[in-house]
Amino acid sequence: MSIPAASPKSDALAALYWRSEILQVMYWLRGEGFGDVVDPGLIERFLGVDAAIGMTYLDRLVDEGYLVRDGDWYALSEFGLERGAREFQEAFADLTKPTHGECSDDCWCHASVDEAEACIAQRLGHDHDHA
């Protein structure tokens, strides 16, 4: 399991994308009564991102103050909770929703110049799955 094809390729947007995805999972699980603690394996199961890659984004969220780390586990911080799921969702709605493109509805190629360049570079270097 690796990075899902629908995720952005440029580092800047990828960081925003995964911040949104991870926090949404954590808010969702918390709302459903499963607490607010996750590990990379759970992130892999819920988001389809490789656990090792997911862990880098989890650590990034720790650095940004959204999460706190306790060994292998990550929990929402007070700051992360304060932001609230609704506010977060509104703030990043435009960034996390793919726009129209000739590849597919899910492709980020036309979300920004950075994305287009990153996508072209990736396609030149690898087989690119425009799922």
Binding site: W28, R30, G31, A85, R86, Q89
Partner: peptide, 12 residues
């Protein structure tokens, strides 16, 4: 939509 709950965290 996120639904606020007095008894617990917001739920989707």
């Amino acid at each position: 939509e996120w639904v606020a709950s007095l008894a617990g965290p917001d739920r989707r």
